[in-house]
Simulated scan of single mutants.
Amino acid sequence: MRGDKDSITPVEQARDLKTLLPPDTDLTLLSALRHIPQIEDPGMFNDALLKTLAKL
């Protein structure tokens, strides 16, 4: 999970890193958030985290 407006770790870098993970790994982009989405919008982050954990 990451903010789609992160200027420290660009989305392209996250996509590159994702290639090192299992193919069924999701990359969740949180709208309008930056580098620390869990602090910027805890509710949105927690919702996305719970959805991801439910898939396991």
Rank of each mutant, 00 (worst) to 15 (best):
R15C: 06
R15S: 06
R15A: 08
D16M: 04
D16H: 07
D16A: 10
D16C: 00
D16R: 13
L17I: 00
L17A: 08
L17G: 01
K18N: 01
T19P: 03
T19S: 14
T19L: 13
T19A: 15
T19R: 15
L20W: 10
L21W: 08
L21Q: 13
L21M: 14
P23I: 04
P23C: 02
P23S: 11
D24A: 13
D24W: 00
D24Y: 02
D24M: 06
D24I: 00
T25C: 13
T25P: 11
T25N: 10
T25W: 07
T25I: 03
T25M: 10
D26V: 03
L27M: 10
T28Y: 03
T28E: 13
L30W: 07
L30I: 15
L30V: 02
S31M: 05
S31I: 02
S31N: 14
L33R: 08
R34A: 13
R34C: 06
R34G: 04
R34Y: 12
H35G: 12
I36M: 12
I36S: 05
I36P: 01
I36L: 12
I36E: 11
P37L: 12
Q38T: 00
Q38E: 08
Q38A: 02
Q38K: 00
Q38I: 02
I39C: 03
I39M: 10
E40S: 05
E40A: 03
P42T: 02
P42G: 07
G43Y: 10
G43H: 10
M44D: 10
F45Q: 04
F45T: 06
F45V: 06
N46E: 15
N46A: 14
N46Q: 14
D47F: 06
D47W: 04
D47T: 14
A48M: 06
A48I: 02
L49A: 11
L49C: 09
L49W: 05
L50V: 11
L50P: 00
L50K: 14
L50D: 15
L50R: 15
K51R: 14
K51M: 06
T52P: 00
T52I: 05
T52H: 12
T52Y: 08
T52D: 08
